[in-house]
Computed example of a mutant assay.
Amino acid sequence: MKSPHAETVTPDRDWYPPAQRLDSPNQDERPPGQQPELIVVHAISLPPGEFGGGHVAELFQNRLDPDAHPYFAEVGGLRVSAHVLIDREGQATQFVPFSRRAWHAGVSRWQGRERCNDFSIGIELEGTDEDPFTPAQYVALAQMIGWVRARWPDIGPDALAGHSDIAPGRKTDPGPHFDWARLRQELHEVSA
């Protein structure tokens, strides 16, 4: 499916080649002159604690059936997205080009700057606060971060945060089971 924003994106920087593409309407232009400077790691599962089923993609595309599960009635009206979702098997789906603003962070602050959506890339991992993430997810996340950093030089080596880091007290993801040391090791192996 051709993106409705194809004229404003650069394919060699905006679309991660291994990812399946599904457009989300929940995106817009970044502020003028603003490039990505931060990667935010999230975790999501729909319904909560269940994996697979395509419901996260439906949420990001405003197609979640509120009658399919009681929880969906609560979240079906949200207008949210992420740039990329990595499922439990390490497969990536991209919803928003990296040069555009995905609606993933909400009210947020990083290093004194508010509105993290303006300058960040949001990556959702299929998961919960209660479950460890899979080895395939760490490998896929590290490979994608390496690819993104090579194309967006304003994203420095320390410009990596969890949703809980930019919205403390409001968000807890990616949660206590996310292994930041393992991600750093995977990133080291990708760059070696």
Rank of each mutant, 00 (worst) to 15 (best):
L85F: 02
R100I: 04
A57L: 06
T93G: 08
T134Y: 02
E29Y: 14
E114H: 11
R115P: 03
E50V: 12
Q20E: 14
R88P: 12
D65K: 01
S191F: 02
A68I: 00
F133C: 00
W147I: 07
E50P: 07
E74Q: 12
A167I: 02
L187D: 03
A181G: 12
P47K: 01
L85M: 09
D129H: 02
A19N: 01
A73Q: 14
P97L: 02
Q143Y: 07
D158A: 15
F133S: 01
D23Y: 15
L183N: 11
L38V: 08
Q61Y: 07
P17T: 09
I166Y: 00
R101M: 12
W152R: 02
A92D: 00
Q143K: 10
Q61I: 10
F178T: 07
A19I: 04
G90Y: 04
E189W: 13
R21Y: 15
H69K: 10
L64G: 11
V139F: 06
K2Q: 11
A43W: 00
N62M: 10
L46M: 08
G106S: 07
F98D: 01
N117E: 13
A82I: 04
I145D: 00
K171Q: 06
Q34G: 06
F60L: 12
Q94E: 01
L22S: 07
E7C: 13
G146I: 04
P48N: 08
F95R: 05
P48Y: 07
E89A: 15
K171C: 02
G49H: 05
Q20D: 09
V41D: 03
R149T: 04
G175Y: 10
A57Q: 12
G127I: 09
L46D: 06
E37L: 10
A102K: 01
P32T: 14
E74Y: 08
D154Q: 15
V139M: 11
I123G: 10
F95V: 06
R13Q: 08
A92N: 02
F95Y: 14
Q111I: 02
D131C: 14
L78N: 10
P48L: 10
P153S: 06
L64F: 12
C116E: 03
A136Y: 11
H188Q: 11
F98E: 02
E114T: 12
H104P: 00
M1D: 13
I39W: 03
